[in-house]
């Protein structure tokens, strides 16, 4: 008589797969990838618009809100100056033969323009030993004009003219360009 070999018992799924957690994580990763691909495949038109009850194409509420916020930001710009809190050496990006310049207290380091104080999102270490003074408030274009004027006129400031000839700067120490 033949001995009928018993069928191997089905292995416990946990025993068969020693890493169930890894498998689950991988599945979720695949799902996330698919979602990203699907979203990326959606055009911007589809993201920004919807069909209203009359069948007309309209902007989404989110998009309208962004328009409102962006418009406000552009109307609420400010032109600022960063000045030295105390006398000392400050980084210089417009100096001819050196990367540092001696500034006396309250001398100009940089002119700039920001929308809604965006500059202040920089780490505080950026403003170590600097004071942020708001000189002009208006819409973005007005502020850019003010900034440009001040950068261009900088060579004529008394604090620059009192320096020895070879140390006079064409622009403030931290304004390497006119904008």
């Amino acid at each position: 008589m033949y001995e009928i070999a018993s069928l191997p018992k089905p292995k416990n799924s946990k025993q068969h797969n020693p890493n169930p957690k890894k498998e689950t994580t991988f599945v979720w990763f695949l799902v996330a990838c698919v979602c990203v691909l699907v979203y990326a495949g959606v055009s911007e038109f589809e993201k920004f618009t919807k069909i209203d009850e009359n069948g007309k194409v309209q902007l989404t509420e989110k998009r309208l809100e962004k328009l409102h916020k962006d418009t406000l930001k552009l109307q609420n710009a400010e032109q600022y100056v960063l000045i030295a809190l105390e006398s000392g050496y400050y980084p210089c990006f417009t100096c001819k033969d050196t990367t540092a310049i001696w500034l006396y207290q309250n001398e100009v380091w940089r002119y700039g323009v920001t929308i809604n104080g965006k500059e202040m999102r920089y780490p505080k270490s950026t403003f170590k030993n600097l004071v942020y003074l708001v000189e002009f408030k208006g819409n973005l274009q007005q502020c850019l004009v003010e900034e440009r004027k001040k950068i261009v006129i900088y060579p004529l400031l008394p604090e620059n003219l009192k320096r020895s000839a070879e140390k006079r700067l064409g622009r403030p120490p931290a304004n390497p360009y006119d904008h």
């Binding site: 100056v81 030295a84 809190l85 105390e86 000392g88 050496y89 400050y90 980084p91 050196t98 540092a100 001696w102 104080g117 202040m120 270490s125 403003f127 170590k128 030993n129 600097l130 004071v131 942020y132 003074l133 708001v134 000189e135």
Partner: peptide, 24 residues
Amino acid sequence: KKKLVSETPMLNFDLTAVCWHEVY
């Protein structure tokens, strides 16, 4: 080598201001 003010050791108590230029 010119030591920048930003390279000096951190003070225990540091401060600065953001203000309208006319009151600075």
